[in-house]
Amino acid sequence: MVSINYYLGLAIILFTIGALGVLIRRNSIIVFMSVELMLNAANLAFVAFARYWQSMNGQIFVFFIMTVAAAEVAIGLALIVTIFRSKASIDVDQMNSLKG
């Protein structure tokens, strides 16, 4: 059995890569994918803890996080499509006005 610390270390690394992606990429779709990566890293930590405490609650939490991620992706991508229609760009630096 692999120690939980390895899983937590991996979750930390994946979360950091996701945070770095949000900060350095300007393509809003890739920024969005990085957010998904961070959610996934959190899921990994949840499932690791669920295994080690032998409790189902962590896995149920991951189930809810997946639902929220699916809702978030549906709304976020619809927003990106709408922004692309009005500005013909998905660069986050171009999104600097409240009214399109």
């Binding site: 300007r26 393509n27 779709i29 998904e36 692309f84 998905i90």
Partner: peptide, 25 residues
């Protein structure tokens, strides 16, 4: 859910917008 539905949605939007290569600004 993730590898199937969500990523297919991502790929669909990327190809719909033709945003494969966003300029480096």
């Amino acid at each position: 859910v993730y590898a199937g539905a969500i990523m297919v949605l991502f790929l669909f939007v990327i190809m719909l917008l033709g945003a494969e290569r966003a300029g480096r600004t």
